[in-house]
C-alpha cells in the first residue's frame, strides 16, 4: 500500500506522536538552575532575547563584574549574576577569592504574588503550571510589580504592559524545551518535570556535599524550605546566602498576610459610618 503524506500531514502526525509520548501538556514543568555549573556565558540571556524577540535594554557598562544586564525586567527574562567574593569555596585549592555565576529567572512560584494580585485576570496559571501574563488582557495597572517578592515582573513604560518570563509557553506547546535551557552549554539550566528535577537536584546536592562542597543547598525547591511561596517551579542550587545573589531569604507573597488587614479595613469602615451617623444625630439635637 502506498501512503502519500503531505508535509502538513507529516508534521501533524509527528506532533501527535510527540504529544502522546513525552507530552509537556498537563505536566508540572520548571527549571532547576544549578549555579555551580554556570560559567557565566550568558547564552541563556541571548537565547531568550532572540527566541522571544525581546528588544534590548540599552548597552550599559556597569562595572559590576561582568554583569551589564543588572536585573530582570520587562524585556530581560534571564539575567546572569556575577558575584566576586573575597572568600574561597570549600573545594578550592588556593586563593581567598571565588567567582560565582547564577542565571536568574522568573520563579513561577506555586503561590505567585503577581497572579493573586492581578485585578484583570491577565496573569494565569498555564497547563504547564507556569505563570503567564496574557499581553492581550494586561492593562498595565502595575500592581503585580509591587506584588512580586523577587522583583521580577516589570512594566515596560513605552509598551504600557507588564512582562516577564513565559517559561517559553509557545515552545512548550510545541513540545520543545525553553530557549534558555536549550542554549545552556553546561546544563546549568535544567528543564523538565518538577518531580524529576527535584530528585535530580537533591542528588546533586548530595554529590556536592560528598565531594566536600558543604555550602551547597537548594533554594525554593519545595514548600517546606520556602513556605511563603509554597515552592518555586524554577528553583536554584546556591553556595552562598540568597542575598548574595540578590534573592530574598524569605519571600512571602503579600496575599498571605492581608487577611488581618481586611479585618482592620472592615472595622475602620464601620467606624467611619458610625462617625457619620453619630455626627448627624449630634446635629439633630
Amino acid at each position: 500500500m502506498e501512503a502519500v503524506l503531505s508535509a502538513a500531514d507529516a508534521i501533524s502526525l509527528e506532533r501527535q506522536a510527540a504529544a502522546s509520548d513525552t507530552g509537556n501538556r498537563g505536566r508540572r514543568k520548571g527549571f532547576f538552575t544549578d549555579t555551580t555549573l554556570c560559567i557565566g556565558c550568558k547564552a541563556c540571556e541571548v537565547a531568550c532575547k532572540q527566541w522571544n524577540q525581546l528588544p534590548d535594554d540599552g548597552f550599559l557598562f556597569t562595572g559590576m563584574s561582568y554583569d551589564n544586564t543588572v536585573a530582570l525586567g520587562a524585556s530581560t527574562w534571564r539575567h546572569v549574576a556575577f558575584i566576586e567574593r573575597p572568600v574561597a569555596l570549600s573545594t578550592q585549592d588556593a586563593g581567598a577569592f571565588s567567582w560565582l555565576f547564577s542565571s536568574d529567572v522568573c520563579k513561577h512560584c506555586a503561590r505567585a504574588g503577581c497572579l493573586d494580585s492581578c485585578p484583570t485576570g491577565a496573569i494565569v496559571r498555564t497547563e504547564f503550571d507556569s505563570v503567564y501574563v496574557q499581553p492581550d488582557i494586561c492593562n498595565g495597572c502595575g500592581y503585580c510589580v509591587v506584588n512580586c517578592p523577587f522583583g521580577v515582573i516589570d512594566r515596560r513604560e513605552d509598551d504600557g504592559r507588564a512582562w516577564k518570563c513565559t517559561l517559553c509557553y509557545d515552545r512548550l506547546r510545541e513540545e520543545m524545551a525553553p530557549a534558555c535551557a536549550k542554549a545552556c552549554p553546561t546544563d546549568s539550566i535544567k528543564f523538565g518535570d518538577l518531580e524529576e528535577l527535584r530528585e535530580t537536584a537533591q542528588e546533586r546536592v548530595r554529590a556536592l556535599h560528598h565531594s566536600g562542597m558543604k555550602e551547597a543547598y537548594l533554594y525554593g525547591a519545595d514548600a517546606v524550605s520556602q513556605p511563603g511561596t509554597e515552592g518555586l517551579n524554577a528553583f536554584f542550587l546556591l553556595v552562598d546566602k540568597p542575598e548574595v545573589y540578590n534573592l530574598p531569604p524569605d519571600p512571602v507573597p503579600p496575599l498571605k498576610r492581608v487577611k488581618p488587614v481586611w479585618a482592620s479595613f472592615a472595622m475602620a469602615a464601620v467606624g467611619l459610618l458610625t462617625l457619620a451617623i453619630g455626627s448627624a444625630f449630634a446635629a439633630r439635637r
Binding site: S65, V70, G142, V145, G151, E243
Partner: peptide
Amino acid sequence: GVAEPSPTYYGRPMLKPPVW
C-alpha cells in the same frame, strides 16, 4: 567586592519600585 564579603548584590535593590 574584594575587601569584605558583601551581603547585597552591588547594592542593587532586590525589589522593583512602584511604577505608579
